[in-house]
Design a protein around this nucleic acid. Sequence first.
DNA 1: TTTATTTACGCAATCGTTCCCGGTAACGAT
DNA 2: ATCGTTACCGGGAACGATTGCGTAAATAAA
Lengths: 345, 345
Amino acid sequence: MKFEAVTIKDIAKALGLSTSTVSRALRDSYEISPETKKRVLEYSEKINYRPNPIALSLKEKRSRSIGIIVCEIANSFFSQIINGIESIAYDKGYNVIIAQSHESYDREVINVQYLASRSIDGLLVSVSSETQDLEHLKNLHERGFPIVFFDRIVDEMQTHKVIVDNFKGGYDATEHLINSGYKNIAALAGSEYLSITKERLGGYRKALEDKGHNYDEKYIQHCLHGGMLYDEVENALNQLLQLPTKPDAILASADKLTTNCLRYFKKRKIKVPDDIALIGFSNLDLTDLLSPSLSVVRQPAFEMGQIATELLIQQIEAKRQVKDFERRILPPQLFVRESTDKSLR
Amino acid sequence: MKFEAVTIKDIAKALGLSTSTVSRALRDSYEISPETKKRVLEYSEKINYRPNPIALSLKEKRSRSIGIIVCEIANSFFSQIINGIESIAYDKGYNVIIAQSHESYDREVINVQYLASRSIDGLLVSVSSETQDLEHLKNLHERGFPIVFFDRIVDEMQTHKVIVDNFKGGYDATEHLINSGYKNIAALAGSEYLSITKERLGGYRKALEDKGHNYDEKYIQHCLHGGMLYDEVENALNQLLQLPTKPDAILASADKLTTNCLRYFKKRKIKVPDDIALIGFSNLDLTDLLSPSLSVVRQPAFEMGQIATELLIQQIEAKRQVKDFERRILPPQLFVRESTDKSLR
DNA sequence: TTTATTTACGCAATCGTTCCCGGTAACGAT
DNA sequence: ATCGTTACCGGGAACGATTGCGTAAATAAA
């Protein structure tokens, strides 16, 4: 069943005009007499005419829609980002099309190709945990296709990038743990390929060194899927808890890592923070309701989405090729709660 | 900066053929000689040709994309639904375009009009809390535009509908509370306009009556925005707790209502379930980590999204107008945890 | 050899809209 | 009477792809 809609031709025929005249009348051209305009406008209103955006897209070679690639929308951080993206996009008359990689490189490639087959004007990307090869994106980028990276960026491509100061986030969290008296601080990190993982661990390391703690790689465990799978978190934590000197605090560097970590402790009846402290990167808005309430590094996700979208649309609408790319760095925020602070219980 | 892409014309020109021949060669028509096909295919591959979906849409009068309208994607239930929708849509070669109403009627109307201005082939809708007037949807529906409702459906329109058995959900939850010994069970409900609210309260009432408890409307509070705003939940709970006989259990009939309820109790140091028990409709996958862990009625969100999408695409691709509309009802699932069961603590 | 059939391709219309060229009145100036 | 100007409007190409129809050449059948 096709949905037949009103076109400019129908109006022209009904009023005994040409399509050009109708088109011009609708766009309020000076070449059309006031009476004709009035007739056209009234009739279009009456039959509820809407211009066909697809025909416009074909003519103008732009679809007024942008693609988003994230790993999961069922993740507070990303759904907040999407809200930020949406808020700007709709303001400027753009549609957004969301695709999820589910942390799979293959699905990311498929999605990029699907979206980029010219039904979108630009792309907002946060790469998957597995992504190493960037050919699928470089390809587009080299042909002048507007791409903006956010959160999980890549070094090899010259584009606009919007991130939080992950180094500072890692540093602040670690420093807080040290200041709270924890001695053996382990890191439960995401995929080694991700920029955010490297940066957060960089901050973790620097804080340890600054405070005279020794940095030991055995105290770092990576989860390729960023904690999406409970098993990988379980394995990682088993490793950490088998170390000769057990860690007394854990820095989890992603949302799902943090919550699955808490789940692990709960299952094994390991008390947080008494047996072990936990701080994580998270944008959940329920961290205050968890047991114990979670200390977190929170990222300004909404703003991140907004800025990325502004940069992208700016690039899409630029007259000539953009050569100067910006790198916006937003501040993370540390929230101290029960999971790292015994006095709060 | 426009992104100039390869067209069928470029191929035709390069190979000294007409566009028709190239088109047919690409579609493997029997009218084209094997050699020509080979040349065309190889060259298209080389220059990475992709057909322009917009041109196709214009010609075929279909965009192969469907619109989704939900209140919030930053809500586990809806993001799970969207995952279900996506899983089917991408399989069948459809794009999805998501729009959020943020529980506002005005934004819902704007989104519907925006999406429906012919860039989509069908619409999946879960109405906002505020929605009473349905003209914006009826309009489309009467003109044969495919619409499928899910979760928050409306009675006045004859379309496919996919819901959970909300009556049963409300009944089971209430029955569980009664069986657990609670005497004064209050209901914290969403907008009165919503189908789900009515159905869930219906189950609540029936369970009370079946078990010989008296049903008292004073024990029901509605939140127009479904708990999105903490204040409305706070007001509602203040009302309930001021009743002569204070409720000893609460049934919250939506995700945000449930969590904000818990937040209220936590703030006021009201112990759950000792001072008051709490059970809620929720699809959070963190309910086991909350303090206390939450008893919930969980809905098969992913499946719901899948079924709704299958019905929609089936209708879009139907040869003639669909007249027989289905009403699929999925079973909810009750999970008993600490918040209603003192023995689990 | 003539006719019929097959093979392989091009022309042109189509989808809905915009916009570059016209073109034709009407009117005033010369 | 002729020209220039202005005000209005229509024809038709273009965007990229598909497709019905026409047709030339090659081959087969008579």
